[in-house]
């Protein structure tokens, strides 16, 4: 009876607040790898794997994403059809733009940097960019680069029930098994982090959103965070969602919240 009362009075696990979730999430990795400083998780798997880290640092000597940053910088300075520039719409402090996203906006849901860029282009009479286009990825690479050293600071305001709903939807997606192979994101990136799937080591979700977009050697090009999500969902043999779909934006919102306090260090380079 006393036990029933006690259990009855405990909140359901899924109803824990975002900040409790985040502390538990960080704590999970901390208990698995006590020697790894939390800030290191911004470097993904290279926080955990010495050999891969050495190779990665060698790649970083001549960053394969440099060209993307340069192109992004040119796009930033290009005038839009109505004579305005993106800076008029997105903000004048260039290092403060990337850290404002993803954020929840009532009636719009989770607004990512990509969504904000397209909204600005649209308002200025320019064509919206495809979310897998080189232009979009280059511009986000540039804005990430300019924001290096700023911390992720995603907010789920208590007075906006929609924000909590979006966060909860992203959390639910992250922990749900899907696809013919029946994997949840968490099955690999929480439960099995650091383990090998054939030759590949599974990276931590903590710190995952900080370094995108990334240059992937395997693909010989830059990819966005949502393209990475797309690849994972496809690999568990589920039908992937569209880039910048509500599902993926909610996952980005949840995962970015989990990484709050970590430094933005994009663009990155990955195998």
């Amino acid at each position: 009876m006393a036990l029933t009362l006690l259990l009855g009075s405990l909140p359901l696990p899924s109803q824990a607040g975002p900040e409790e979730d985040r502390l538990a999430f960080v704590g999970h990795y901390q208990s698995l790898f006590p020697e790894v400083p939390i800030a290191e998780y911004a470097n993904g798997i290279y926080a955990l794997d010495e050999d891969a880290r050495a190779q990665w640092l060698a790649i970083e000597d001549f960053p394969p994403y440099e060209f993307s940053i340069e192109r992004g910088s040119e796009l930033w300075d290009t005038s839009l059809p109505d004579g305005s520039q993106l800076t008029d719409c997105l903000g004048t402090e260039i290092n403060k733009i990337r850290p404002q996203y993803p954020r929840y906006v009532p009636n719009q849901g989770v607004v990512t940097l990509e969504l904000a860029i397209n909204a600005c282009r649209s308002a200025a009479g320019a064509k919206r960019w495809d979310y897998s286009s080189g232009d979009m990825i280059d511009l986000t690479a540039y804005l990430a680069f300019e924001a290096r050293g700023q911390e992720l600071n995603v907010r789920v305001p208590a007075d906006q029930p929609g924000a909590l709903a979006a966060y909860e939807a992203g959390k639910r997606f992250y922990y749900s098994k899907r696809g013919q192979l029946n994997f949840a994101c968490a099955d690999c990136h929480v439960t099995s982090v650091g383990q090998y799937v054939r030759a590949d080591r599974l990276g931590p979700s903590l710190g995952h959103p900080t370094h995108f977009p990334v240059y992937r050697s395997k693909l010989g090009g830059m990819i966005s965070l949502h393209q990475r999500f797309f690849g994972c969902v496809r690999d568990v043999r589920a039908k992937p969602f569209e880039l910048q779909s509500e599902e993926f934006r909610n996952v980005e919102f949840f995962l970015s919240y989990m990484s709050n306090g970590l430094e933005i260090n994009g663009p990155g380079a990955r195998k």
Binding site: S192, Q195, Y196, V197, R198, A199
Partner: peptide
């Protein structure tokens, strides 16, 4: 992908 099997190369560890 997840199990070491005999002399199979690059086995997983899940």
């Amino acid at each position: 992908a997840c199990h070491r099997i005999d002399d199979g190369e690059l086995p997983g560890t899940l």
